[in-house]
């Protein structure tokens, strides 16, 4: 019999090296609680990241995982998941990692719909590289690489996800752990690819999108009766609620039940391929060769 774990059982051996007050602490706590409350054991989970302050998270959690390359958390995580699909796979990383260098993988992962979760710790800045503009930095924002203000429009991850066939799209805020735990649990339980854009303020390099800013400018979709099965409604909210609007939605924007990728390869993935017997039998070898005769 397995016992039910608590959040503290998912605490890693290494203490996080984030700046005091960094939003990523909150994300780590929320994730540890969500895993415990989802009834998971440490060895049943793999947390897989790219590179960035946020991508250091797998080092601080007591599960399996990978700490890979900048922007490449998703292909590593998808390869891992297809190889060992009875483990829970959770990709984590920053907005630069997920929406900048790795955005190509994200779009395809969403339409592919492998059963996993992707948490993007969105601080609208490149933290680890000491404060350059990111794909979600607001227009006009001054950063080290845009001292005269960011001339580009920020990317809207929610409408991008909705347009890419994502089967679960949500947004959380590390400063609202109660709501975030519920969203993470729903994402983990979702059968398919779940994107959770998570506001996680960088206290050192982003003086605009602070915890205070998010407390003042976010609201809970569920409280306003949003229907998460309605794609058009989700698009409407996602496009209306911009950074600049002062009304930024959090909660589950959209969820559907289309079959996840694994269900399209039921035969091959009847059991995890990492458990399969390796090699080709003598009889099968003859059949394979016959095609070339």
């Amino acid at each position: 019999m397995t016992t039910t774990l608590e959040a503290k059982d998912f605490k890693g051996e290494v203490h996080p090296d984030w700046c005091p007050g960094c939003g990523d602490f909150g994300v780590l706590n929320v994730l540890q609680r969500a895993l415990a409350e989802s009834g998971l054991q440490q060895h049943e989970v793999a947390v897989i990241s790219g590179i960035g302050c946020s991508s250091n998270l797998p080092g601080f959690i007591n599960t399996y995982g990978m700490h890979t390359l900048h922007g490449r958390s998703l292909p590593n995580a998808q390869g891992f998941k297809l190889a060992h699909h009875d483990m829970k796979v959770i990709a984590v990383g920053g907005d630069g990692d997920g929406y900048g260098i790795g955005v190509g993988h994200l779009i395809h992962a969403m339409r592919r719909n492998i059963d996993m979760t992707d948490i993007v710790m969105n601080n609208s800045i490149y933290g680890l590289t000491t404060g350059q503009t990111s794909p979600t930095s607001g227009e006009g924002m001054k950063t080290k690489s845009t001292p005269f203000g960011n001339p580009e429009l920020p990317l809207n991850p929610i409408s991008m996800a909705l347009g890419s066939g994502a089967s679960f799209v949500a947004r959380a805020f590390s400063g609202n752990p109660k709501q975030a735990v519920e969203i993470y649990k729903a994402a983990i339980a979702h059968k398919g690819f779940a994107l959770v854009d998570t506001f996680s303020p960088c206290v050192t390099f982003n003086k605009v999108n602070t915890a205070q800013f998010y407390r003042e400018n976010t609201y809970d979709l569920a409280a306003e009766g949003h229907d998460a099965s309605d794609l058009q409604a989700a698009f409407k909210v996602a496009t209306e609620d911009t950074y600049a609007s002062g009304r930024i939605a959090t909660g589950i924007f959209y969820q559907n039940t289309r079959p996840c990728y694994e269900e399209t390869e039921k035969d091959t993935l009847a059991t995890p391929i990492c458990d399969h017997e390796l090699g080709i039998t003598a009889d099968r070898a003859e059949e394979l060769k016959a095609r070339f005769k």
Binding site: M66, P75, N76, G79, F80, H105, I107
Partner: peptide, 20 residues
């Protein structure tokens, strides 16, 4: 997959999980 970056990284992810 979507590109060669994905192809090789997927191999590394799968290799980590213990498949060839």
């Amino acid at each position: 997959v979507e590109d060669e970056l994905a192809a090789m990284n997927m191999v590394v992810g799968a290799g980590t999980a213990g498949v060839r």
